[in-house]
Amino acid sequence: MLLAILLPGLSMMLHGHILRGLLCFFLQFTLIGWLPAAIWGVASRNQDLAERRHRETLEVLRARGR
């Protein structure tokens, strides 16, 4: 989570969002753009975690249905 705040572009790239990460890096290089980039990085990280939980839940439900 700290990486998503301090280096949001790198955080996005590490989670497989290469183009979003590059755009976020460009946004982060401006002083005004750093705060929106940090918020975007944290939101992206939270969305990735929610999607992973959703996939895991679906796998469990499918396993129970068999």
Rank of each mutant, 00 (worst) to 15 (best):
G33D: 03
R45T: 13
T57Y: 15
I39L: 07
N46I: 12
E59V: 07
L61D: 13
Q47I: 10
L31H: 07
R64S: 05
R20D: 10
L58V: 08
A50S: 08
L6R: 00
E56R: 14
R62E: 13
F25P: 02
Q28T: 02
R64A: 11
I18H: 01
A4G: 08
H15V: 01
L19Y: 10
E51Q: 15
A4N: 03
R45N: 07
L35V: 14
R64T: 06
I39H: 08
G65V: 10
R53C: 00
L61R: 13
V42T: 05
L23G: 14
G65A: 11
A38P: 08
L22Y: 03
L7F: 12
F29E: 02
L10V: 10
I39M: 03
G16P: 11
G33H: 06
L10W: 04
R66D: 11
L58C: 02
L22N: 07
F29T: 07
I39G: 06
V42D: 05
W34S: 04
V42A: 03
G9D: 00
W40S: 11
A37P: 08
A43Q: 10
R62W: 11
L31P: 00
F26S: 09
F26Y: 02
T57D: 13
A63E: 14
L35D: 03
V42K: 05
F25L: 09
W34Y: 00
E56Y: 03
V60R: 15
F26M: 09
M13A: 07
I18E: 02
L58D: 06
L31S: 00
H54M: 11
R45V: 10
R20I: 11
L19C: 06
L7C: 01
L22P: 03
R20Q: 12
M1Y: 11
R45F: 14
A50T: 04
S44K: 03
E56L: 13
